[in-house]
Amino acid sequence: MYIRKLGVLTAVCAAAIALAPAASAAPGPRAACPDAGPNVLRCLTTFTPAAVRALADGPVGWGADDLVSAYRLPASAGPDTVVGISIAYDAPNLEADLAAYRAQYGLPPCTTANGCFTKVNQQGAAAPLPEADFGWALESTLDVSMVSAACPSCRIVVVEGNTPGFADLAETEDTAVRLGAKVVSNSYGAREGGAPLAYASHYQHPGVTVVASSGDTGFTAASYPAVLASTVAVGGTTLARDPDSARGWAESAWEYGGSGCSAYITKPKWQKDTHCGKRTVADVAAVADSVAIFNADAGGWLPVNGTSASAPFVAGLYGRSGRAGVAGPADLYAHASQFVDITTGHNDPAGAGKKCGGDYLCVAGAGYDAPTGVGVPNGLTGF
């Protein structure tokens, strides 16, 4: 179901409709933004309505404190880098939802009043904002939450496109940069092709690091804009506690995380893998499975999944590193040894790696592999 409604009140109604269980549907994850057809981008979040918990009951899923531990983030908050969020439609309760998340994890307030939080339309104005959409609002909530977990000191600029069309979201990218973003996160994707690639220049800004989700349908055609050589393509992992390891955590390739071999983009000189003659996705990875967010329209705390979580988290790490706008995808490969190599799992849900013949394009292994790239963060050193 693809829901679009006008205004705050109808957005809440849309949430109720979206969350109401269908009589014929089995309980389980559903796409926040189901495929709306050609010439549009799709947000990459899935959620389980039955897992929603009230504010007083607390989070379910991995929270900011878990991610700090798993990825060995420093105690110091870092600089106040501006991180841009390119997104479609309005999320009317976004600032309040972010406030609940940050309060839960002891993060400093990030508000319009203190200059940390800004939300504008695709032209950069505070009003009028686009119409509201429950699924994209859920995505927005995830994006700002993950940036906050990665970089509590970063300022956040959310730029809302009128639609998820290629042109509108390309404009949000340009606007985020114009408003001072040094890193821009894009938690959406579409199959690469001539139509989306016509807007590639909007994801190439000198002095800005652009980050994008690799996709949520496993090993398949490469996803735009992640496939662009100028973009840091972020794959997904499944995270678990492992008290028997020195790290205290275990991680494997998320079975739905996107990877692919481009049919269009020339292989960058910094990519050395040999079974894809053009650009390979992804470059790096982070948790994409069971991440906690708070969304009032959804009913409270809920776990969500998707490389939509991985990309803004990595964007926040660029912001926290102080090298946003300087570092890009090439640097990841140059500093591959500074990441935690992910050597287990695959992203071929139906065939357990058969789709790529057990190759690194869909099966994690030692060194570079397409589902997890050079690995997952180990502090900020690789960025």
Rank of each mutant, 00 (worst) to 15 (best):
D297V: 10
A296V: 09
G325E: 01
G325K: 00
Y318F: 15
V304G: 10
G328Q: 03
D331C: 00
P329G: 06
G299A: 08
V326A: 05
F313W: 12
P329R: 04
V314D: 12
N305K: 13
G319V: 09
S308I: 08
P312N: 13
P303F: 09
A324E: 03
V326M: 02
G300W: 11
A296D: 05
G316W: 09
A309Q: 14
G299D: 13
F294V: 08
F313K: 08
V314M: 13
G328P: 01
N295R: 08
P303Y: 08
S321R: 01
G328N: 05
T307P: 03
A311Q: 06
A298P: 02
F313D: 08
G300C: 11
P329Y: 02
G316H: 06
A311Y: 09
Y318Q: 04
Y318W: 12
D331S: 04
V304Q: 13
A298G: 04
G300L: 15
S310V: 15
L332P: 07
G299S: 13
V304W: 08
A327L: 00
R323V: 13
V326K: 02
P329W: 01
Y318C: 04
G328H: 00
G300K: 13
L317N: 03
V314H: 12
A311N: 08
T307N: 12
A324I: 01
G319A: 09
A298N: 09
A311M: 09
G319T: 06
G322F: 02
N305I: 09
L302A: 08
S308C: 15
S308N: 15
A309E: 10
G316I: 12
S321Q: 01
R323M: 01
L317M: 09
P329C: 02
A324P: 01
N295W: 07
R320E: 05
L317G: 03
R320W: 06
R320H: 05
T307I: 07
G316V: 06
W301C: 13
S321F: 00
A330F: 03
G299L: 11
L302R: 11
P303C: 05
